[in-house]
Each structure stands twice: as structure tokens, then as C-alpha cells.
């Protein structure tokens, strides 16, 4: 059936948890592209045949006309599915740019296609350049603040750092009260966790 593979591709994306990526399905993707090429060959040969018969594409509604139309519609559908697959993945990649600094963790990176990796880099840079134009960091403060200080546990050895109101020794497993704005960068890097309740 026309468009079945493209449908599977989109289905694969919608089945994955939202915000999560599965590996880029190169194989199926290439098959859909092959489908497209086949469609265009058949479409062209039908159009040529009609031309040779001297029938006008606009007025003659014979089997060839509808055959050509089917191939055209199948192509358009395949294109939409391919674009939906890539675009929706690209949206997830965009969101990564908000939370992750320029280096992707390995487990995410291996799921991306080459072009997606490039896209992540360039989009993160775009985002960073906007922030530096305005001189404001938008990657912190993701949730409305309740208290200026939060309780955190250090997960990785960070060492002595100077924070905005104190200098602290952030040793592993230490539990401290820190300014939320100070702690946030470490939390997003996975070096700290917030203790609630």
C-alpha cells in the first residue's frame, strides 16, 4: 500500500514518550525516500504517455490521469510524513538546547542523525547569542521561585566555589542550603539534586 512505510515512520515517533528520542531510523527513512523516487518515475512516465496521446492533463479524466494523481498524492503524503518525522524530532532537539550546554550526553548523541547533531549545535549557539545580546540567562529559573534558598544534595565532587553570597565547599553527598539561582546550574548539569519535603 502506498504510504505505509511513511506512516510507520511517523507512528514510531508518536509511540515514543514525549520529549524523548529514539534512534534515528535511517533504514526506514531511506526506504520512504526510495518510495518517493519510484512514485516520481511512475508519475513522469504516465504524464509522458498522456502527452504522447495528445490528451490534456486538465480536461481528460481517464485512468492515466487518476493514476498520475494517485502517485502525486502519495508523494505529497510521503513528504509530509518525512517532514513530520524530522520536524518533530527537531523540536525535541530544540528543547534540549534550553537545558543542556553545548556538549550532548553520549546516550542522546548516539540517537541523533548527523544533521540533527549539527542542528543542535547551531540552534544552541543561536539561543546563546540571543541570551548574550540581552545579557540575561534564560536557562535558569524554569519554575516559579518560592524561596530564595533551597536544600540540595551534592551528587558529584565540585570542590570549593564562590557563590553569589558565600563561598562553599561542595563535596560529594554534602547537604546544603544554597541560593536557588546558584544551585540551578549544578542541578541542570546533574551534579546536584534538590531535596524537597
Amino acid at each position: 500500500m502506498y504510504g505505509r512505510k511513511a506512516y510507520q515512520l511517523v507512528k514510531e515517533f508518536t509511540n515514543s514518550e514525549s520529549g524523548q528520542l529514539t534512534g534515528f531510523n535511517d533504514d526506514l527513512f531511506a526506504q520512504v525516500i526510495e518510495d518517493c523516487k519510484e512514485h516520481v518515475l511512475k508519475l513522469q512516465s504516465l504524464l509522458r504517455k498522456m502527452q504522447e496521446e495528445g490528451s490534456d492533463n486538465q480536461t481528460t479524466k481517464n485512468a492515466d490521469h487518476f493514476g498520475a494523481l494517485m502517485h502525486h498524492l502519495a508523494l505529497v503524503r510521503n513528504k509530509r510524513c518525512l517532514m513530520a518525522y524530522v520536524y518533530n524530532r527537531a523540536e525535541v532537539v530544540q528543547n534540549l538546547g534550553w537545558t543542556i550546554d553545548l556538549v550532548l550526553p553520549l546516550e542522546i548523541e548516539e540517537k541523533l542523525s548527523i544533521s540533527e547533531k549539527e542542528y543542535f549545535k547551531s540552534h544552541s549557539k543561536t539561543l546563546k547569542s540571543y541570551m548574550s545580546d540581552l545579557d540575561i540567562d534564560l536557562a535558569v529559573d524554569m519554575v516559579p521561585p518560592k524561596d530564595p534558598y533551597i536544600k540540595v544534595r551534592v551528587l558529584e565532587e565540585i570542590g570549593n566555589v564562590v557563590l553569589s553570597d558565600q563561598s562553599a565547599n561542595l563535596t560529594r553527598y554534602a547537604i546544603l542550603f544554597l541560593r536557588r539561582t546558584d544551585a540551578e546550574q549544578y542541578i541542570s548539569q546533574g551534579k546536584m539534586e534538590e531535596l524537597t519535603g
Binding site: 525516500i33 518517493c36 523516487k37 512514485h39 516520481v40 508523494l75 513528504k79 518525512l82 517532514m83 524530522v86 520536524y87 527537531a90 542523525s113 544533521s115 540533527e116 549539527e118 542542528y119 547551531s122 540552534h123 543561536t126
Partner: peptide, 16 residues
């Protein structure tokens, strides 16, 4: 620009 290039590279350049 970024998105267009990404779409071009991944999909559009491979289409008829």
C-alpha cells in the same frame, strides 16, 4: 536558517 538547512539536508534534498 538553521532549521531550513536541517530540513534540506535531512529530507528535502533527497526528494524529487
Amino acid at each position: 536558517e538553521d532549521t531550513k538547512q536541517h530540513l534540506d539536508e535531512s529530507v528535502l534534498s533527497k526528494l524529487p
